[in-house]
């Protein structure tokens, strides 16, 4: 092969992607042609430098570390031992808290939401869509629910991160389930529309407004519920109640 023919193969040759015969012919040519040898070697150096220039930065490293931690780190509250401890503590607190906690735990919407939240913690429930993009999550619910789901846009300033969503059912009522992480702790948010809310008679009587939401403590978990213009919202998680209240307000149409 001539020099110009040889140089046509420079890219796949340097990537070791040529068939053995062509590879051999080029190698032979390079042994005898200093100009081509230098050209190939220079291209190899440049390609190596290009790749090295595209190394990740410290910001990406930090993002990776967080992503790995959230993905594979065994959350202490999911381990059987901690779940048992949490359940025992919850029972103690419920007893210590008197009848109010007991009543709250039996309230239909809260009970259903808390059960679903527990299912997620126990890894018995998978998300239908995993994305931190509000637009993607909203699009997922489009045409799956008879009402429009709107997700808040700027939550990261509060340390809240959207993880994903699924279409789930509480008392056979289709509701939007949104999963958030607050400091790596999962928070479940349920959105039910006016029509579905009819099935939760106990909740209808006790729901607060977004400006004055109902907040309860069920053992380690906090629960916040509120009436929306068209339906209701319920947030559950082992995070401060104030955080859930903030999240609930962020889901009101005015805030979104």
């Amino acid at each position: 092969m001539r020099c110009d023919e040889i140089r046509r193969w420079i890219s796949p040759y340097l990537d070791s992607e040529l068939d053995p015969r062509t590879n051999f012919e080029i190698a032979q040519h390079l042994e005898s042609c200093a100009a081509c040898r230098q050209a190939f070697e220079a291209e190899r150096r440049l390609e190596t430098s290009l790749a090295a220039s595209l190394a990740p930065d410290p910001t990406t490293q930090a993002a990776w570390d967080r992503a790995v931690r959230r993905t594979v780190a065994p959350p202490v509250w999911r381990s059987p031992r901690w779940q048992a401890a949490a359940a025992a503590l919850g029972l103690l607190l419920a007893l210590a808290g008197g009848w109010r906690a007991g009543v709250v735990a039996r309230q239909d919407l809260i009970r259903s939401a808390a059960q679903n939240h527990q299912q997620y913690l126990a890894n018995r429930m998978a998300l239908d869509v995993q994305s931190s993009s509000p637009e993607i999550v909203e699009a997922f619910f489009h045409e799956k629910l008879p009402f429009r789901v709107q997700c808040p846009r700027d939550l990261t300033s509060q340390g809240i991160r959207l993880i994903g969503a699924r279409l789930c059912h509480l008392k056979r009522v289709p509701v939007a389930y949104l999963l958030y992480h607050v400091e790596n702790r999962p928070v479940s948010v349920f959105l039910v529309d006016e029509e579905g809310l009819v099935q939760f008679q106990q909740a209808v009587r006790t729901l607060g407004t977004p400006s004055a939401p109902g907040g309860y403590q069920l053992g380690r978990a906090a629960v916040v519920t509120a009436r929306l213009a068209q339906g209701a919202i319920c947030a559950v998680g082992e995070v401060p109640q104030a955080t859930l209240e903030w999240l609930v307000v962020a889901h009101t149409p005015e805030a979104v």
């Binding site: 910001t59 993002a63 990776w64 992503a67 959230r70 993905t71 594979v72 931190s132």
Partner: peptide, 15 residues
């Protein structure tokens, strides 16, 4: 978007 991309990729791969 980098963190979102990494998070989504890792969660999906993990599953």
């Amino acid at each position: 978007d980098v963190e979102d991309i990494l998070q989504t990729a890792l969660l999906n791969a993990y599953q």
